[in-house]
Amino acid sequence: MRENRLLLILLLSAIIFCLLFAYILPINRYSPKSPYNPDIWISKYSYNSNELLDVKFNTHNRGRLYFDILLNGVKTEAYLDTGNAFGICVSEQAAKADKFQIYNYTNVYNSEGALISESPQFKVNSFYIEGKQMKLDSGIIVEGKDSYIGFEPFKAGRITLDYKNKKVAFSKSRLPENITSSESRQVFNFFIMEGNGEGYIVIPIRIDEEEYYAMVDTGASVSVIDSKIANQVNAKQNIFGRVKLSNLEIGSFKTSLPSVSVHSQRAVGRGIEKEIMATIGADVLCQFLVTIDYQQRLLILER
């Protein structure tokens, strides 16, 4: 009897280990790539050396790029979140310092336009990212321990993300005209949502040769597809609600993902003709040198 119980425990342990190895670990398994060293791409993309910033990136922060920031005299960390429609969202923990004077409350919505919360809004008196002064008027205080930066500080220029070398560059100068699509580089004209989702970056993608609209979200650890897409491509969800996606096309680039989240992802934005049915997260973005030019509404992926 005791031997049978021991065998059962060993069998259950082996099953749990296999599930963890097959489904959970790949979620945190990022493979950052870059076609160039930073000194090469800052030249190609016409950045000055003083526009290059350091960031933190590893699997423990779930694919997010973290900056050291100084906000209203308070030192903290914040990750870059292109899916954030606000200037900066500061964690309650960081906001405990007596440097954030609330002057209003603002409604926070999700990508589907549903009201999530009413959050305190504060005035930004000073804001530095990795020692570089940035223009920002206000921010909000959110639950949780993480702070995150939205598109607002970067909307007057362009930003390049190098996940592999842990570097980011920001400039208000114009993108060089020779940065065009090629075999190793794709240039997309993206849509920007207005209203509740202002600043969201939306591009067309293809899954099983069917076109969908997807939001590009550096704050999303894992890419997401709507349950309607999962049903259309006959993707079988595992016990964690995730699917393997082996037929994702972004422009001419093809990639596969071992673990994609599946849930209601539909959103409708003013000025966008189709529903947004997916999110491209850090598990995809880290495979490229990523440039976002907000002034010209260009997304550039290079590998």
Results as ranks from 00 to 15, higher is better:
166 K>N: 01
14 A>S: 12
218 T>E: 04
197 G>Y: 06
289 L>Y: 00
267 A>H: 06
87 G>M: 07
120 P>S: 03
207 I>L: 09
188 F>A: 06
235 A>E: 07
169 A>E: 02
97 A>I: 08
7 L>D: 13
81 D>L: 03
90 V>T: 05
203 I>E: 02
13 S>C: 11
169 A>H: 01
245 L>G: 03
51 E>R: 01
21 F>Q: 14
68 D>K: 15
107 N>R: 10
144 G>Q: 03
151 F>A: 13
225 I>G: 02
247 N>Y: 08
165 N>C: 00
277 M>S: 15
285 L>H: 07
250 I>T: 03
289 L>V: 03
253 F>G: 01
150 G>T: 06
155 K>N: 11
279 T>K: 09
75 K>E: 11
111 S>H: 08
168 V>I: 08
82 T>P: 06
218 T>M: 06
219 G>C: 06
276 I>Y: 04
70 L>E: 10
213 Y>K: 15
112 E>H: 13
104 N>M: 05
136 L>G: 03
1 M>E: 13
89 C>W: 13
261 S>K: 13
207 I>F: 05
234 N>S: 13
302 E>P: 12
265 Q>P: 09
165 N>D: 01
16 I>W: 11
201 I>D: 00
122 F>D: 02
240 F>C: 07
15 I>W: 04
211 E>G: 10
242 R>N: 12
273 E>M: 12
232 Q>G: 08
287 Q>W: 05
300 I>V: 08
242 R>W: 10
198 E>L: 14
216 V>E: 01
173 S>I: 10
186 Q>D: 09
194 E>D: 12
198 E>Y: 15
288 F>A: 00
266 R>F: 11
149 I>H: 01
120 P>F: 06
156 A>Q: 14
58 N>E: 05
258 P>F: 08
25 L>I: 12
202 V>K: 07
252 S>W: 11
261 S>T: 11
131 G>W: 03
